[in-house]
Design a binder for these strands. Structure first.
Length: 546
RNA sequence: GCGCCCGUAGCUCAGUUGGAUAGAGCAACAGCCUUCUAAGCUGUGGGUCACAGGUUCAAGUCCUGUCGGGCGUGCCA
């Protein structure tokens, strides 16, 4: 939107010998401040040793612009330069929007580059619960943003089907299996075991397929339980993700790191750097020498690595792949670990500046005004599937995408369940459906709109306000990508919907004069396009009817 | 104790990388449907931006401290 302005201002700045100035435009909150404003004169004050307003005057004097696009340029306040654009500037932009259509909002800043986004990465020890959705949505939307910025994107899922957690799963299943065979008092590890009802489901399937042949808790039988559990849980997770319309390109099994010797290799490399020592039978990494709080165990005295070590080996592999950007999504409980992993990978000599770690705060659930616990004492648990059943996929996707990652978000189950105007996602979808409905109505009446010819007629305040909002979309996408903040898309789309509703309310479309009707349909199509494209980034449907 | 994240309207949250008069939704109140979808629009009330200092032309935003919350501080992940 500020492309032309940037160009003419850069020329003017060069003319006064300040070509390296930091030039930024913003859209003023107050209408009397014009359509675009820059504080560049104030930022130059110190460097040039002149008062801001004087600098602003010389910039304006050096400014050459097309008067059919720029209506007025003036100095205001302490030294702001306010620019008022002419209607033509906006209608040109609107025409560009219509020409780009489904691609409007995309940019090519990532052309030829590759981004790897790792998210979800839940181990196959149970169904996904609503807390997992935050990680999932952040990752999925960020991956979408990279795609809109022209990157080649790989969506990756890292999982571990070995180790302690899986052993617990196997023992839990086996205990439930024995209980189902009639031994009601067969001991279940209440402290470490998985208490969910799904464990009974898995055990029941084992009873059906294997009878009582797995009765003894031998390594062999437990391994059958583990395998069955893994398959069941993974199927459950993939099914949930499919409902959410989340699809990964790569599933990376932690176990492969052992098979390929990457674990031993990584320890060896760290040892060569003098970063490894033994104590009390365990192997430590000197993270305290890498700027962190203390040293950490990477191999337990039992000989098993802790989660840090495979994570380091995994990230080393990710760094070797040649992606330009590597994104990891973690809950804030992984904050310390992620620092350790990055420090370790950096110590191995990799460029860790391309690793971006998104830490998100936890989600609290509220129902009927009180804290809602996802897992009950009796082993029953509220899953992400349950949540989708209760509120719908679009609501889930939107609610988890609408907040910044660093807020401790409160998920109000009642509000999400509300199929009414209280629910913010419907506000956006309704706006899109309204646009679609206008075209449907036009078709009914036999009105055909093939080309848009008279955009200059769009001069109603509600129309220009809407156009201005629509033209910000590419900038919003760019910023959201750069900052890895998908929630700004959700915020922006609310503005678009609000502007559309005002336009719809104040301007008749179908019964306007033919030329004006044509122009208003152009604006309607443009709005529909932005809503659809924006919702696509969030992965939320844009229905034609509601 | 220490580290990280946070504290903005009654509630849930934005806040354009330090800009002009701090915004939105919900909740409350008052209006608008014989007219393209009222899941909409318009208006009103609601704030010591946790608190105290500091940095500068300018601070919700940056720095320091205090208070309050979350998460870490495992040879769990």
């Amino acid at each position: 939107m500020y492309g032309y302005l940037t160009q003419i201002f850069q020329d003017a700045l060069a003319a006064i010998g300040a070509e390296d100035a930091h030039l930024v435009f913003e859209s003023p909150k107050v209408e009397s401040h014009g359509d675009a404003a820059t504080n560049v004169a104030m930022t130059l004050s110190k460097k040039l040793g002149k008062p801001p307003r004087t600098i602003a005057e010389s910039i304006i004097a050096a400014l050459n612009y097309d008067t059919t696009l720029v209506y007025a340029v003036e100095i205001a306040g302490p030294g702001f330069i306010n620019i008022r654009l002419s209607a033509r500037y906006f209608t040109n932009g609107l025409q560009g929007l219509l020409d780009e259509g489904a691609a409007y909002g995309a940019n090519t800043s990532g052309a030829g580059k590759r981004a790897n986004v790792e998210y979800v990465s839940a181990n196959p020890t149970g169904p996904l619960h609503p807390g997992h959705a935050r990680n999932t949505m952040l990752g999925d939307c960020i991956a979408n943003l990279y795609r809109w910025s022209g990157y080649g994107v790989t969506r990756e899922y890292y999982f571990n089907n070995a180790g302690n957690q899986m052993n617990n799963l196997a023992r839990s299943i086996h205990a439930r299996y024995r209980q189902l065979l009639g031994e009601k008092d067969y001991p279940f590890d209440e402290e470490n075991g998985y208490k969910g009802a799904y464990i009974f489901t898995i055990a029941e399937e084992l009873v059906k397929s294997a009878g009582d042949s797995l009765k003894e808790p031998t390594d062999e039988n437990l391994s059958v339980c583990r395998k069955k559990g893994e398959e069941w849980c993974f199927a459950s997770i993939l099914n949930t993700l499919a409902r959410l319309n989340v699809k990964h390109d790569v599933f990376f099994n932690e176990h492969s790191l052992y098979a390929d010797g990457k674990i031993t290799e990584t320890v060896g490399l760290l040892r060569d750097k003098g970063l490894v020592y033994e104590q009390d039978g365990a192997t430590y990494i000197r993270t305290s020498e890498l700027g962190l709080e203390k040293d950490r165990v990477i191999i337990k005295s039992t000989g098993e690595p802790t989660y840090r070590l495979p994570d380091m080996a995994y990230h080393a592999i990710k760094c070797q792949r040649g992606d330009d950007i590597i994104v990891d999504i973690f809950g804030s409980d992984h904050a310390e670990v992620s620092k350790e992993v990055v420090a370790g990978v950096k110590a191995l000599g990799y460029d860790t500046t391309k690793i971006h770690i998104i830490l998100h705060q936890m989600v609290r659930f509220v129902k009927d005004g009180a804290e809602y616990k996802l897992s009950k004492r009796n082993g029953e648990q509220y899953t992400l599937d349950d949540l989708m059943d209760d509120v719908g996929v679009d609501v889930v996707r939107y609610f988890y995408s609408m907040r910044s990652a660093d807020t401790q978000l409160v998920f109000d189950i009642n509000l999400a369940q509300e199929q009414s105007d209280k629910n913010p996602v419907f506000y956006l979808q309704y706006a899109h459906a309204r646009c679609a409905n206008l075209f449907a109505k036009a078709q009914e009446k036999g009105v055909t709109i093939e080309t848009y010819t008279s955009l200059d007629l769009l001069i109603h305040p509600a129309e220009t306000a809407l156009i201005k909002t629509l033209l910000k979309f590419p900038l919003v996408v760019q910023r959201a990508t750069q900052n890895l903040e998908p929630h700004t898309i959700a915020d922006y789309l609310r503005d678009v919907a609000a502007a559309l509703h005002v336009f719809y309310h104040e301007c008749r479309i179908l019964d306007a004069e033919p030329l004006l009707m044509n122009a208003r349909f152009a604006l309607t199509r443009a709005t529909q396009t932005v809503l659809k494209n924006g919702l696509a980034i969030l992965g939320v449907n844009a229905p034609d009817k509601m």
